[in-house]
C-alpha cells in the first residue's frame, strides 16, 4: 500500500488547491498543437471538487456567448500550470450544481467578505 502512495506522491503538486467551492478562478491550461505550445486561460466559477489525492479534479463553469460551459481539470495534471484565484465566493454548499438551473443575476455567487478579526 505504501508503495502505491509513494508512486502517487511523486505526481502530486503541493498547494495545488488554493481555492474553494464558489470561488472564481483562472486556470492556466497548457495546450499542445503539433509543435507549438501555448497557455490558455479559462476563467470561471468553481462548482465542484471531486475525488482525492492524485485524481482530484475541479469543475469550472462559465458562460460563453450565453452558453454554459463546464470543464473538468485534473488538479495535479502537468498541463494545469497554475490556478489563479480571482474572487472569493460565499456559498453554503459543497456542490453548486443548482447554478446550472439559474439564469442572469440569480446565477451569481455573492463575494465573500472576510471581516477583520478583533
Amino acid at each position: 500500500m505504501d508503495a502505491i502512495k509513494a508512486v502517487e506522491a511523486a505526481h502530486v503538486k503541493e498547494n495545488a488547491e488554493n481555492f474553494r467551492i464558489g470561488d472564481t478562478v483562472k486556470v492556466h491550461f497548457r495546450i499542445v498543437e503539433g509543435q507549438t505550445e501555448r497557455i490558455q486561460i479559462y476563467e470561471g466559477l468553481v462548482i465542484a471538487l471531486n475525488n482525492s489525492g492524485l485524481r482530484r479534479t475541479v469543475t469550472v463553469r462559465k458562460l460563453s456567448y450565453g452558453v454554459g460551459v463546464e470543464r473538468i481539470f485534473p488538479l495535479h495534471s502537468p498541463r494545469v500550470q497554475q490556478i489563479e484565484l480571482v474572487r472569493r465566493g460565499r456559498v453554503r454548499r459543497a456542490k453548486l450544481y443548482y447554478i446550472r438551473n439559474r439564469v442572469g443575476k440569480a446565477a451569481k455567487v455573492p463575494e465573500l467578505v472576510r471581516r477583520k478579526e478583533r
Partner: peptide, 21 residues
C-alpha cells in the same frame, strides 16, 4: 503485485498502471 493506480505521462494523460515489486 502491489496494486493499481494512475500516473501522469509527459503530455498530461493519466495512465492506469499496475505496480509490481
Amino acid at each position: 503485485k502491489v496494486g493499481m493506480t494512475q500516473v501522469f505521462d509527459d503530455t498530461g494523460r493519466l495512465i492506469p498502471v499496475t505496480v509490481l515489486k
